[in-house]
């Protein structure tokens, strides 16, 4: 298969970038999207040009590192997969493919398609945990948890922190990401002790990072590679309102 790639090139955070067009030939339909970029990069290196910088690691859709915005969709046109799981058979021979980085003021571009997502880490650091020191735990089966709650908590916990929700949202909002963690812990008894402080601190950090607000468009969930539901955002709103009205954090 042959393709015309329109790829965003940007030297560094302070430089302005632009699209550069690269034709690429003889790609197997079985090759993955990132393998196609690998091939292009090898060609660029052997021509003495700089390869395209992009984030990737596990290449099996779980580490959340890959982050390409392809033809108007984070992680490309298919549902419920990450960029690394996308295969060229999802495109037509001769297609023109536009590839950009996530765009959000909270995710500054580092180089080409690589962005800095440490804002997500700081949101988790603000409260996305249960404060239990190693060695303090009681027997695991002392806390029975209704299967439906455990399953829902798991569904929220499957977030891979890739940032597709931010990339897809017209407001570059991080509500889906933040709410997934808030929800997971709000659904479990272990999370109740710190529930109020957690949601207050995580939302405050999220706002501080410069993400937009949620306008309930649902784009985040529609484009999430793990299919995380916006029901989680509602749960976070609920937790937030509850916490703000009843916490003693004045």
């Amino acid at each position: 298969m042959n393709f015309t790639l329109k790829i965003w090139r940007q030297k560094g955070a302070k430089d302005s970038g632009q699209f550069v067009t690269y034709p690429i030939k003889d790609i197997s339909s079985d090759s993955s999207f990132l393998e196609m970029i690998d091939i292009l990069n090898n060609q660029l290196v052997e021509k003495g040009e700089e390869p395209i910088a992009f984030d990737h690691d596990c290449r099996e859709g779980i580490c959340g590192m890959c982050s390409m915005y392809i033809n108007g969709h984070p992680h490309g046109p298919e549902n419920l997969i990450t960029t690394c799981q996308l295969h060229m058979r999802s495109f037509k021979d001769g297609d023109s493919i536009t590839i950009e980085p996530w765009r959000s003021s909270a995710f500054p571009v580092i180089k080409d398609l690589v962005v800095d997502r440490s804002a997500f880490d700081r949101i988790i650091q603000a409260g996305g945990y249960v404060s239990v020191n190693t060695g303090n735990a009681q027997d695991a089966n002392n806390i029975p948890i209704p299967k439906t709650d455990a399953d829902k908590a798991f569904d929220a916990a499957t977030c891979i922190g890739c940032g597709a929700c931010v990339a897809a949202c017209k407001n570059a909002s991080a509500m889906l990401f933040t709410s997934a963690k808030v929800s997971q812990l709000a659904l479990l008894p272990q999370g109740q002790v710190e529930a109020k402080a957690r949601v207050e601190n995580m939302v405050a950090q999220m706002d501080k990072e410069g993400f937009g607000a949620c306008t309930n468009t649902g784009a985040c969930s529609a484009e999430c590679p793990k299919g995380i539901s916006i029901e989680n955002i509602a749960r976070m709103n609920r937790e937030f309102i509850k916490a703000k009205l009843s916490s003693e954090n004045v």
Partner: peptide, 29 residues
């Protein structure tokens, strides 16, 4: 105010369009 701060959250817009599946109403509030 929300529109302004939401715009600020994405200073550079996408060159390849934004094709996420959403209801039209929500995007043009």
């Amino acid at each position: 105010g929300l529109v302004i701060s939401n715009k600020k959250a994405r200073p550079v817009s996408y060159g390849g369009g934004a094709n996420a599946k959403t209801s039209t109403g929500s995007k043009i509030m």
